[in-house]
Simulated scan of single mutants.
Amino acid sequence: MMFVVDTDKTRLDVARIHRFLAEESTWALGIPLATVERSIAHSLCYGGYVDGEQVAFARVITDQATFAYLLDVFVLPAHQGKGYSKLLMDVIMADQRLQGLRRFMLATSTAAWLYERYGFAAPAKPEALMERNFPDIYRKGA
């Protein structure tokens, strides 16, 4: 079995992405399908495939000049432990559209070890960062 990463949005299994995010993720439980579709339409997307079947996904929100934000990274549970997350990240970090950025951010509570190998670290000045955070927005129907 060979793992391949592709940036062609037409290949994405949107139903599978939605199912994982809405039912299995720790960050987007209950997310509506329409929201997933809109997020894909406005992001750089990376699908990971084994024998043509999508088993991994990630997306990046970016202006492709100064800033990027990595999110919705996952490998389906049945395919974890095979190095696919590293291969997915290798492709993302090599993407020419994401080179020379002043800031590349992400938020994670489960896989800091993965992102640290690509130079991600806790913010140098956390006191300078602010956020509006609504972690249960999809479950509360807001």
Rank of each mutant, 00 (worst) to 15 (best):
T110S: 15
I31W: 00
V36N: 05
I92V: 15
G141C: 10
V60D: 00
V73R: 01
M105S: 03
A122S: 11
S85M: 14
R132V: 15
V91Y: 01
D51R: 02
L114E: 07
E127N: 12
A107V: 14
I61P: 01
D8R: 08
A121D: 01
M130S: 13
Q96Y: 01
T66R: 03
A111L: 13
Y138K: 00
M89G: 06
V73I: 04
D13N: 04
L106N: 11
E131I: 05
W27N: 10
V75Y: 03
G52Y: 04
A56R: 07
G52H: 04
A124G: 14
Q96M: 06
T7H: 09
Q99L: 10
F120M: 07
H18F: 00
R59S: 12
A68E: 00
A28D: 05
A58V: 00
L101I: 07
L71F: 12
T108E: 03
G141Y: 15
R16H: 01
K82I: 09
G52T: 03
D51C: 04
G30E: 07
T10D: 13
S85G: 15
A107T: 14
W27Q: 14
R11V: 06
V91T: 09
P77N: 14
R139V: 13
L106S: 11
D8T: 09
Y49P: 03
V5D: 02
T62I: 07
Y69M: 13
G100F: 05
L87R: 15
R132W: 15
F120P: 03
N133R: 15
F134I: 08
